[in-house]
Structures are given as C-alpha cells and as structure tokens.
C-alpha cells in the first residue's frame, strides 16, 4: 500500500487530478494562487519532490519545463483511504460503517434505496 501523504500534498494531488492527471508546474502555481494559497515556490517544489519519492507522481520533462503526472489515480487514492479508515475506525467492519451512516443521517434511506436499485440494475 502506498505511503500516506500530508494535507498539503493532497491539495497538490487534487489539482493534478482535476487537470486530468497531469499538470505543469506553472499550472499548479496558478491554481494555488486562485485558491488564495500563499505557498512559496520552494515549498511547492519540496512537496512535489516528496510526492515523487512516495511514488504518487512521476516527473516528465517537456522541453525545459516539468510536468507532474499522477501515478496513483484519485479513485485509487479514495479506495486506499477508505480501507485505511475502515480498518482504523471500524475494525474492518463495513456494516457498522453503513449503520453509522444511516443512523446519523449522513446517508438517507432514500439514497440507500437508490443505491440498491442501481446495484441491482448493474448486476442484471
């Protein structure tokens, strides 16, 4: 299983995922500025380097510029986090998780019915 990444690293990953899984450094900086993030150049470079080391990103050179390509997709990351969350908090017991979702109204009964019928259709 891949390593954990910090919140700030996740922000960068999200930008890259949003851009179709690859982004130039300049684009990343632009997106950060849009969200009023005041991250210095070196800071971003350090974080990108770390993501590279953790095998979340691959660096590709386009001319003189660096393009950062996501090796782990957003879906894979979500799954990973889901597993780790499930293990950590629910001891691997999915039913308990769903019951919490329902009891706390995070998942409404209607939504659950929708999911059930969707699932049935998929399996037909």
């Amino acid at each position: 299983m891949a390593q954990q990444i910090s919140e700030s690293e996740l922000v960068l990953m999200k930008i890259i995922w949003k851009n179709g899984g690859a982004a130039l450094y300049s684009l990343i900086m632009e997106e950060l500025e849009k969200d009023k993030n005041e991250w210095k150049n070196n800071t971003v470079l350090t974080l990108l380097f770390r993501l590279g080391e953790k095998k979340y990103l691959k660096v590709r050179k386009i001319g003189r510029r660096n393009e950062y390509v996501a090796v782990i997709t957003e879906a894979e990351y979500q799954t990973m986090q889901m597993h780790s969350f499930l293990d950590k908090v629910y001891g691997g017991n999915v039913k308990n998780l769903v019951s919490t979702l329902l009891r706390q109204d995070i998942l409404s009964v209607d939504e659950l019915k929708e999911i059930e019928s969707f699932w049935r259709k998929e399996n037909e």
Binding site: S8, E9, W39, K40, T46
Partner: peptide
Amino acid sequence: SDIKILNLLSDCEEKLNIKIRVE
C-alpha cells in the same frame, strides 16, 4: 508538512539566494 514552516524555510532560502531544494 506544516506549510507555514515550509514557507519560512523558503523565505530564508531566498534571503541567502539558495537555489537548491532543501528538505
């Protein structure tokens, strides 16, 4: 991973004109 601290480091690197990335 604290952005504030990383930014501080960045500032200091700039002040000293250091181009290489320091972990």
